[in-house]
Design a binder for these strands. Structure first.
Length: 422
DNA sequence: TCTGGGGTCCTAGGACCC
DNA sequence: TCTGGGGTCCTAGGACCC
Protein backbone atom coordinates (compact mmCIF):
# COMPACT_ATOMS: atom_id res chain seq x y z
CA UNK A 1 0.00 0.00 0.00
CA UNK A 2 1.62 3.29 -1.06
CA UNK A 3 2.04 5.70 1.83
CA UNK A 4 -0.04 8.85 2.10
CA UNK A 5 0.72 11.51 4.67
CA UNK A 6 -1.25 14.41 6.05
CA UNK A 7 0.65 17.14 7.83
CA UNK A 8 -1.52 19.06 10.28
CA UNK A 9 0.12 22.27 11.44
CA UNK A 10 -1.29 24.94 13.75
CA UNK A 11 -1.30 28.41 12.26
CA UNK A 12 0.93 30.87 14.15
CA UNK A 13 0.67 28.51 17.11
CA UNK A 14 1.83 30.61 20.10
CA UNK A 15 0.06 33.72 18.87
CA UNK A 16 -3.13 31.72 18.27
CA UNK A 17 -2.96 30.23 21.80
CA UNK A 18 -2.91 33.74 23.25
CA UNK A 19 -5.93 34.65 21.16
CA UNK A 20 -8.08 31.69 22.19
CA UNK A 21 -8.53 33.03 25.71
CA UNK A 22 -8.63 36.67 24.78
CA UNK A 23 -11.08 37.22 21.92
CA UNK A 24 -10.45 40.96 21.98
CA UNK A 25 -7.25 40.09 20.15
CA UNK A 26 -9.14 38.89 17.07
CA UNK A 27 -7.95 40.76 14.02
CA UNK A 28 -5.18 42.49 15.95
CA UNK A 29 -1.45 42.03 15.40
CA UNK A 30 0.18 39.81 18.06
CA UNK A 31 3.78 38.82 18.69
CA UNK A 32 5.14 36.34 21.21
CA UNK A 33 8.68 36.79 22.54
CA UNK A 34 11.39 34.31 23.53
CA UNK A 35 12.80 34.00 27.06
CA UNK A 36 13.86 37.29 28.60
CA UNK A 37 11.50 38.90 26.09
CA UNK A 38 14.41 38.82 23.65
CA UNK A 39 13.30 37.89 20.14
CA UNK A 40 10.05 37.48 18.26
CA UNK A 41 9.24 33.75 18.04
CA UNK A 42 5.64 33.89 16.82
CA UNK A 43 3.51 36.37 14.89
CA UNK A 44 -0.15 36.56 13.98
CA UNK A 45 -0.94 37.15 10.30
CA UNK A 46 -1.57 40.82 11.07
CA UNK A 47 1.91 41.11 12.60
CA UNK A 48 3.47 39.35 9.61
CA UNK A 49 1.71 41.86 7.36
CA UNK A 50 3.48 44.66 9.23
CA UNK A 51 6.76 43.16 8.08
CA UNK A 52 7.83 41.86 11.49
CA UNK A 53 10.39 39.12 10.81
CA UNK A 54 10.77 35.86 12.70
CA UNK A 55 13.60 36.01 15.23
CA UNK A 56 14.04 39.78 15.20
CA UNK A 57 15.08 41.29 18.58
CA UNK A 58 12.21 43.08 20.27
CA UNK A 59 14.15 46.28 20.99
CA UNK A 60 14.80 46.80 17.28
CA UNK A 61 11.10 46.95 16.42
CA UNK A 62 9.82 48.68 19.54
CA UNK A 63 8.69 51.85 17.69
CA UNK A 64 6.85 49.75 15.12
CA UNK A 65 5.15 47.71 17.86
CA UNK A 66 3.98 50.88 19.55
CA UNK A 67 2.88 52.62 16.36
CA UNK A 68 0.62 49.73 15.35
CA UNK A 69 -0.47 48.80 18.85
CA UNK A 70 0.90 45.31 18.44
CA UNK A 71 -0.06 43.08 21.37
CA UNK A 72 3.14 41.72 22.89
CA UNK A 73 3.36 38.53 24.97
CA UNK A 74 6.16 36.76 26.80
CA UNK A 75 6.20 33.08 26.01
CA UNK A 76 3.93 30.99 28.20
CA UNK A 77 5.10 27.43 27.64
CA UNK A 78 2.74 25.99 30.23
CA UNK A 79 -0.21 27.26 28.19
CA UNK A 80 1.24 26.24 24.80
CA UNK A 81 2.17 22.76 26.04
CA UNK A 82 -1.33 22.15 27.33
CA UNK A 83 -2.98 23.46 24.15
CA UNK A 84 -0.66 21.28 22.07
CA UNK A 85 -1.81 18.22 23.99
CA UNK A 86 -5.45 19.11 23.31
CA UNK A 87 -4.78 19.41 19.58
CA UNK A 88 -2.92 16.08 19.46
CA UNK A 89 -5.67 14.29 21.39
CA UNK A 90 -8.18 15.64 18.89
CA UNK A 91 -6.10 14.44 15.94
CA UNK A 92 -5.80 10.99 17.48
CA UNK A 93 -9.57 10.64 17.24
CA UNK A 94 -9.26 10.91 13.48
CA UNK A 95 -6.21 8.80 12.95
CA UNK A 96 -4.42 6.67 15.52
CA UNK A 97 -1.38 6.44 13.22
CA UNK A 98 0.03 9.76 14.32
CA UNK A 99 3.53 11.17 14.67
CA UNK A 100 3.77 14.21 16.90
CA UNK A 101 6.54 16.04 15.11
CA UNK A 102 6.72 19.22 17.16
CA UNK A 103 4.68 21.24 19.61
CA UNK A 104 2.41 22.47 16.82
CA UNK A 105 2.42 19.84 14.08
CA UNK A 106 1.74 16.18 13.51
CA UNK A 107 1.96 13.74 10.59
CA UNK A 108 -1.00 11.41 10.06
CA UNK A 109 -0.89 8.28 7.95
CA UNK A 110 -3.85 8.09 5.56
CA UNK A 111 -2.55 5.03 3.70
CA UNK A 112 -5.36 2.69 4.63
CA UNK A 113 -8.16 5.05 3.68
CA UNK A 114 -10.52 3.69 1.08
CA UNK A 115 -12.06 7.03 0.25
CA UNK A 116 -9.79 9.14 -1.91
CA UNK A 117 -11.52 12.34 -0.92
CA UNK A 118 -8.75 13.50 1.35
CA UNK A 119 -9.62 17.15 0.95
CA UNK A 120 -13.01 16.59 2.51
CA UNK A 121 -11.42 14.61 5.33
CA UNK A 122 -8.88 17.37 5.92
CA UNK A 123 -11.71 19.90 6.17
CA UNK A 124 -13.39 17.79 8.85
CA UNK A 125 -10.15 17.64 10.82
CA UNK A 126 -9.70 21.36 10.53
CA UNK A 127 -13.24 22.19 11.59
CA UNK A 128 -13.13 19.80 14.53
CA UNK A 129 -9.79 21.05 15.88
CA UNK A 130 -11.08 24.60 15.65
CA UNK A 131 -14.28 23.71 17.48
CA UNK A 132 -12.66 21.63 20.21
CA UNK A 133 -9.58 23.75 20.90
CA UNK A 134 -10.19 27.14 19.33
CA UNK A 135 -7.02 26.83 17.26
CA UNK A 136 -6.80 27.20 13.48
CA UNK A 137 -4.82 24.50 11.63
CA UNK A 138 -3.79 23.82 8.06
CA UNK A 139 -3.63 20.40 6.44
CA UNK A 140 -1.32 19.32 3.61
CA UNK A 141 -1.64 15.91 1.96
CA UNK A 142 0.84 14.06 -0.27
CA UNK A 143 2.66 10.76 -0.75
CA UNK A 144 5.81 11.79 1.14
CA UNK A 145 6.43 13.85 4.26
CA UNK A 146 8.46 16.42 2.34
CA UNK A 147 5.68 16.90 -0.21
CA UNK A 148 3.07 17.03 2.58
CA UNK A 149 5.07 19.91 4.06
CA UNK A 150 4.89 21.72 0.74
CA UNK A 151 1.16 20.99 0.44
CA UNK A 152 0.70 22.42 3.92
CA UNK A 153 2.50 25.59 2.90
CA UNK A 154 0.14 25.94 -0.06
CA UNK A 155 -2.85 25.40 2.25
CA UNK A 156 -1.60 28.15 4.57
CA UNK A 157 -0.88 30.72 1.92
CA UNK A 158 -3.69 30.23 -0.56
CA UNK A 159 -6.97 31.51 0.88
CA UNK A 160 -9.21 29.64 -1.54
CA UNK A 161 -7.88 26.27 -0.32
CA UNK A 162 -9.72 26.87 2.95
CA UNK A 163 -6.72 25.57 4.84
CA UNK A 164 -6.56 22.15 3.19
CA UNK A 165 -4.51 21.16 0.15
CA UNK A 166 -4.19 17.69 -1.36
CA UNK A 167 -1.21 17.50 -3.68
CA UNK A 168 -2.41 14.12 -4.98
CA UNK A 169 -5.41 15.83 -6.51
CA UNK A 170 -3.37 18.69 -7.97
CA UNK A 171 -3.69 18.70 -11.80
CA UNK A 172 -0.41 20.52 -12.41
CA UNK A 173 2.11 19.56 -9.80
CA UNK A 174 5.16 20.69 -11.79
CA UNK A 175 3.83 24.22 -12.19
CA UNK A 176 3.14 24.33 -8.46
CA UNK A 177 6.60 23.05 -7.49
CA UNK A 178 8.07 25.55 -9.93
CA UNK A 179 6.59 28.32 -7.82
CA UNK A 180 7.99 26.99 -4.52
CA UNK A 181 11.40 28.53 -3.74
CA UNK A 182 13.92 26.08 -2.29
CA UNK A 183 14.04 27.99 0.99
CA UNK A 184 10.52 26.71 1.60
CA UNK A 185 11.57 23.09 1.18
CA UNK A 186 11.87 21.12 4.43
CA UNK A 187 15.56 20.40 5.09
CA UNK A 188 16.97 23.28 3.06
CA UNK A 189 18.48 25.84 5.41
CA UNK A 190 20.50 29.01 5.07
CA UNK A 191 23.71 27.42 3.85
CA UNK A 192 22.17 25.05 1.36
CA UNK A 193 20.09 27.86 -0.17
CA UNK A 194 23.30 29.68 -0.98
CA UNK A 195 24.98 26.59 -2.42
CA UNK A 196 21.98 25.58 -4.53
CA UNK A 197 21.32 29.09 -5.80
CA UNK A 198 24.94 29.34 -6.93
CA UNK A 199 24.26 26.31 -9.08
CA UNK A 200 21.11 27.79 -10.55
CA UNK A 201 18.72 25.73 -8.46
CA UNK A 202 16.05 28.12 -7.24
CA UNK A 203 12.84 26.13 -7.02
CA UNK A 204 11.57 22.84 -5.60
CA UNK A 205 10.99 21.68 -9.19
CA UNK A 206 14.62 22.34 -10.16
CA UNK A 207 15.81 20.57 -7.01
CA UNK A 208 13.64 17.57 -7.83
CA UNK A 209 15.23 17.36 -11.30
CA UNK A 210 18.81 17.80 -10.04
CA UNK A 211 21.52 15.25 -10.80
CA UNK A 212 21.73 12.51 -8.16
CA UNK A 213 25.52 12.31 -8.20
CA UNK A 214 25.87 16.04 -7.72
CA UNK A 215 23.35 16.04 -4.88
CA UNK A 216 25.05 13.10 -3.16
CA UNK A 217 28.41 14.87 -3.39
CA UNK A 218 27.28 18.31 -2.17
CA UNK A 219 24.29 17.61 0.05
CA UNK A 220 25.18 14.16 1.32
CA UNK A 221 22.85 11.29 1.96
CA UNK A 222 20.34 13.57 3.66
CA UNK A 223 20.07 15.76 0.56
CA UNK A 224 19.63 12.76 -1.70
CA UNK A 225 16.83 11.46 0.48
CA UNK A 226 15.19 14.86 0.31
CA UNK A 227 15.31 14.89 -3.51
CA UNK A 228 13.80 11.39 -3.61
CA UNK A 229 10.98 12.59 -1.39
CA UNK A 230 10.32 15.46 -3.81
CA UNK A 231 10.04 12.83 -6.55
CA UNK A 232 7.33 11.11 -4.57
CA UNK A 233 9.49 8.25 -3.28
CA UNK A 234 8.85 8.07 0.44
CA UNK A 235 12.10 7.77 2.43
CA UNK A 236 10.92 9.12 5.78
CA UNK A 237 8.51 6.87 7.61
CA UNK A 238 5.86 7.80 10.11
CA UNK A 239 7.45 7.42 13.53
CA UNK A 240 4.68 6.75 15.97
CA UNK A 241 6.89 5.83 18.90
CA UNK A 242 9.46 8.54 19.36
CA UNK A 243 12.98 7.16 19.72
CA UNK A 244 14.34 7.49 23.25
CA UNK A 245 16.06 10.79 23.85
CA UNK A 246 19.81 10.97 23.44
CA UNK A 247 20.33 14.22 25.28
CA UNK A 248 18.52 16.65 27.54
CA UNK A 249 19.50 20.28 27.97
CA UNK A 250 18.62 23.26 30.08
CA UNK A 251 20.41 26.35 28.86
CA UNK A 252 19.28 29.90 29.28
CA UNK A 253 20.37 33.48 28.89
CA UNK A 254 20.33 35.30 32.23
CA UNK A 255 17.90 38.10 32.98
CA UNK A 256 20.95 40.32 33.48
CA UNK A 257 24.66 39.82 32.96
CA UNK A 258 26.39 38.19 35.92
CA UNK A 259 29.99 38.48 37.00
CA UNK A 260 30.43 36.49 40.19
CA UNK A 261 31.06 32.81 40.67
CA UNK A 262 28.30 32.70 43.30
CA UNK A 263 25.67 33.85 40.80
CA UNK A 264 26.99 31.44 38.19
CA UNK A 265 26.84 28.55 40.64
CA UNK A 266 23.26 29.42 41.56
CA UNK A 267 22.19 29.55 37.93
CA UNK A 268 23.92 26.30 37.01
CA UNK A 269 22.51 24.62 40.09
CA UNK A 270 19.01 25.77 39.14
CA UNK A 271 19.39 24.69 35.50
CA UNK A 272 20.66 21.31 36.66
CA UNK A 273 17.59 20.88 38.85
CA UNK A 274 15.40 21.61 35.87
CA UNK A 275 17.15 19.20 33.52
CA UNK A 276 17.15 16.53 36.25
CA UNK A 277 13.37 16.88 36.49
CA UNK A 278 13.10 16.31 32.75
CA UNK A 279 15.38 13.31 33.11
CA UNK A 280 13.18 11.68 35.75
CA UNK A 281 10.07 12.52 33.78
CA UNK A 282 11.52 10.52 30.88
CA UNK A 283 12.48 7.74 33.33
CA UNK A 284 16.11 7.98 32.33
CA UNK A 285 19.44 8.29 34.09
CA UNK A 286 22.53 10.10 32.85
CA UNK A 287 26.17 9.08 32.73
CA UNK A 288 27.63 12.28 31.28
CA UNK A 289 27.19 15.92 32.31
CA UNK A 290 28.28 18.81 30.09
CA UNK A 291 28.32 22.39 31.33
CA UNK A 292 28.94 25.51 29.29
CA UNK A 293 29.04 29.24 29.84
CA UNK A 294 29.45 32.25 27.58
CA UNK A 295 29.70 36.03 27.59
CA UNK A 296 27.47 38.22 25.40
CA UNK A 297 28.76 37.98 21.84
CA UNK A 298 26.64 40.94 20.78
CA UNK A 299 28.39 43.24 23.21
CA UNK A 300 31.75 44.96 23.18
CA UNK A 301 34.22 43.77 25.77
CA UNK A 302 36.26 40.68 26.56
CA UNK A 303 34.65 37.49 25.29
CA UNK A 304 34.96 34.04 26.78
CA UNK A 305 33.09 30.82 26.37
CA UNK A 306 33.91 27.31 27.36
CA UNK A 307 32.44 23.83 27.66
CA UNK A 308 33.40 20.93 29.88
CA UNK A 309 32.22 17.33 29.83
CA UNK A 310 32.39 15.11 32.91
CA UNK A 311 31.78 11.38 33.02
CA UNK A 312 29.87 10.26 36.08
CA UNK A 313 31.03 7.21 38.03
CA UNK A 314 27.52 5.77 37.82
CA UNK A 315 24.29 6.49 35.95
CA UNK A 316 22.12 8.72 38.10
CA UNK A 317 18.86 10.66 38.07
CA UNK A 318 19.46 12.31 41.42
CA UNK A 319 19.44 16.10 41.42
CA UNK A 320 22.02 16.14 44.23
CA UNK A 321 24.50 13.99 42.29
CA UNK A 322 24.01 15.97 39.10
CA UNK A 323 24.37 19.35 40.82
CA UNK A 324 27.58 18.16 42.44
CA UNK A 325 29.11 17.30 39.08
CA UNK A 326 27.77 20.36 37.29
CA UNK A 327 29.17 22.67 39.95
CA UNK A 328 32.53 20.94 39.82
CA UNK A 329 32.51 21.49 36.07
CA UNK A 330 31.45 25.11 36.13
CA UNK A 331 34.07 25.99 38.79
CA UNK A 332 36.69 24.51 36.51
CA UNK A 333 35.83 26.62 33.48
CA UNK A 334 34.70 29.80 35.25
CA UNK A 335 37.10 32.74 34.83
CA UNK A 336 37.02 35.96 36.81
CA UNK A 337 36.80 39.26 34.96
CA UNK A 338 34.00 38.53 32.49
CA UNK A 339 30.34 39.44 32.38
CA UNK A 340 28.45 36.28 31.54
CA UNK A 341 25.27 36.12 29.49
CA UNK A 342 24.35 32.48 29.41
CA UNK A 343 25.04 29.04 30.84
CA UNK A 344 23.75 25.56 30.17
CA UNK A 345 23.71 21.99 31.41
CA UNK A 346 23.36 18.99 29.09
CA UNK A 347 22.88 15.38 30.11
CA UNK A 348 23.96 12.62 27.73
CA UNK A 349 24.88 8.96 27.88
CA UNK A 350 21.25 8.39 28.84
CA UNK A 351 20.11 4.98 29.98
CA UNK A 352 16.80 3.70 31.22
CA UNK A 353 16.53 4.53 34.92
CA UNK A 354 15.31 1.04 35.79
CA UNK A 355 18.23 -0.57 34.00
CA UNK A 356 20.88 1.80 35.30
CA UNK A 357 23.80 -0.32 36.29
CA UNK A 358 24.49 -0.34 40.00
CA UNK A 359 27.97 0.27 41.27
CA UNK A 360 29.19 -2.51 43.51
CA UNK A 361 31.16 -0.07 45.63
CA UNK A 362 28.55 2.65 45.67
CA UNK A 363 28.22 3.77 49.26
CA UNK A 364 25.10 5.91 48.97
CA UNK A 365 21.65 4.72 49.78
CA UNK A 366 20.04 4.77 46.34
CA UNK A 367 16.55 4.00 47.52
CA UNK A 368 16.58 6.89 49.93
CA UNK A 369 17.68 9.21 47.15
CA UNK A 370 14.91 7.90 44.90
CA UNK A 371 12.25 8.53 47.52
CA UNK A 372 13.56 12.04 48.02
CA UNK A 373 13.43 12.77 44.26
CA UNK A 374 9.88 11.40 43.98
CA UNK A 375 8.75 13.62 46.84
CA UNK A 376 10.48 16.64 45.32
CA UNK A 377 8.86 16.10 41.92
CA UNK A 378 5.44 15.52 43.48
CA UNK A 379 5.56 18.75 45.47
CA UNK A 380 6.72 20.82 42.52
CA UNK A 381 4.15 19.22 40.25
CA UNK A 382 1.35 19.99 42.71
CA UNK A 383 2.39 23.43 43.93
CA UNK A 384 4.29 24.77 40.95
CA UNK A 385 7.82 24.55 39.62
CA UNK A 386 10.45 25.67 42.08
CA UNK A 387 8.27 25.41 45.21
CA UNK A 388 10.94 23.12 46.63
CA UNK A 389 14.44 23.76 45.41
CA UNK A 390 18.02 23.22 46.38
CA UNK A 391 19.71 25.84 48.53
CA UNK A 392 22.55 25.91 45.98
CA UNK A 393 20.09 27.46 43.49
CA UNK A 394 20.07 30.53 45.73
CA UNK A 395 17.51 33.05 46.82
CA UNK A 396 18.96 36.17 45.26
CA UNK A 397 18.65 34.98 41.64
CA UNK A 398 20.21 37.86 39.79
CA UNK A 399 20.26 35.55 36.76
CA UNK A 400 16.55 34.80 36.69
CA UNK A 401 14.82 34.86 33.30
CA UNK A 402 12.55 37.84 32.69
CA UNK A 403 8.94 37.68 31.46
CA UNK A 404 7.34 41.11 31.42
CA UNK A 405 4.29 40.32 29.30
CA UNK A 406 3.22 36.87 30.41
CA UNK A 407 -0.41 35.86 29.97
CA UNK A 408 -2.14 33.73 32.64
CA UNK A 409 -1.86 29.92 32.57
CA UNK A 410 -5.53 29.76 31.62
CA UNK A 411 -5.79 26.00 31.31
CA UNK A 412 -3.49 24.63 34.03
CA UNK A 413 -3.95 26.93 37.03
CA UNK A 414 -7.27 27.20 38.89
CA UNK A 415 -6.52 30.78 39.86
CA UNK A 416 -6.02 31.71 36.21
CA UNK A 417 -9.28 30.38 34.78
CA UNK A 418 -10.80 32.84 32.35
CA UNK A 419 -13.91 34.48 33.78
CA UNK A 420 -17.05 34.70 31.67
CA UNK A 421 -19.24 37.69 32.32
CA UNK A 422 -22.77 37.98 31.04
C1' DT B 1 19.23 48.98 28.77
C1' DC B 2 17.48 45.28 25.06
C1' DT B 3 19.70 39.70 20.46
C1' DG B 4 15.87 32.27 22.58
C1' DG B 5 16.00 27.35 23.70
C1' DG B 6 16.07 22.49 22.73
C1' DG B 7 16.80 19.03 19.77
C1' DT B 8 18.63 15.49 15.66
C1' DC B 9 21.68 13.56 12.20
C1' DC B 10 25.86 13.30 9.32
C1' DT B 11 30.74 13.73 8.32
C1' DA B 12 35.58 14.19 8.81
C1' DG B 13 39.55 13.26 11.22
C1' DG B 14 42.41 11.27 14.88
C1' DA B 15 43.62 7.40 17.95
C1' DC B 16 44.15 2.83 18.23
C1' DC B 17 44.15 -2.00 16.94
C1' DC B 18 45.00 -6.06 14.03
C1' DT C 1 66.08 4.95 3.89
C1' DC C 2 60.87 0.61 3.61
C1' DT C 3 55.63 2.99 6.02
C1' DG C 4 49.23 -0.94 3.60
C1' DG C 5 44.52 -1.34 4.61
C1' DG C 6 40.53 -1.88 7.19
C1' DG C 7 37.84 -1.62 11.22
C1' DT C 8 35.98 0.78 15.50
C1' DC C 9 35.35 4.40 18.62
C1' DC C 10 35.31 9.05 19.86
C1' DT C 11 34.92 14.01 19.23
C1' DA C 12 34.19 18.34 17.03
C1' DG C 13 31.87 20.81 13.88
C1' DG C 14 28.38 21.71 10.59
C1' DA C 15 23.96 21.21 8.77
C1' DC C 16 19.10 21.16 9.70
C1' DC C 17 14.43 21.38 12.37
C1' DC C 18 10.72 23.82 15.36
Amino acid sequence: MPPIFALVDCNNFYASCERVFNPKLDGKPIVVLSNNDGCVVARSNEAKALGIAMGVPEFQIRPLLRAHQVQVFSSNYTLYGDMSQRVMETLEQFCPDLEIYSIDEAFLSLSGFTSRNFTKYGRTIRTTVKRWTGLPVSVGIAETKTLAKIANRVAKRTPDTNGVFDLLACPDRDALLGRVPIEDVWGIGRNLIRLLNQHGIMTALQLREADDQWIRKHLGIVGLRLVMELRGISCLDLEECPAPKQSLTCSRAFGQLISTLVDMEEAVSSYTSRVAEKLRHERLAATVVTVCLTTNEFKEGPQYSNTLTLKLPIATDSTSDLIKSALQGIRTIYREGYRYKKAGVTLTGLVSASQAQADLFDSQDRRKSQRLMSALDAVNDRWGAGTLHYASSGIHKAWKTQFQHRSPAYTTDWTALPIVTA
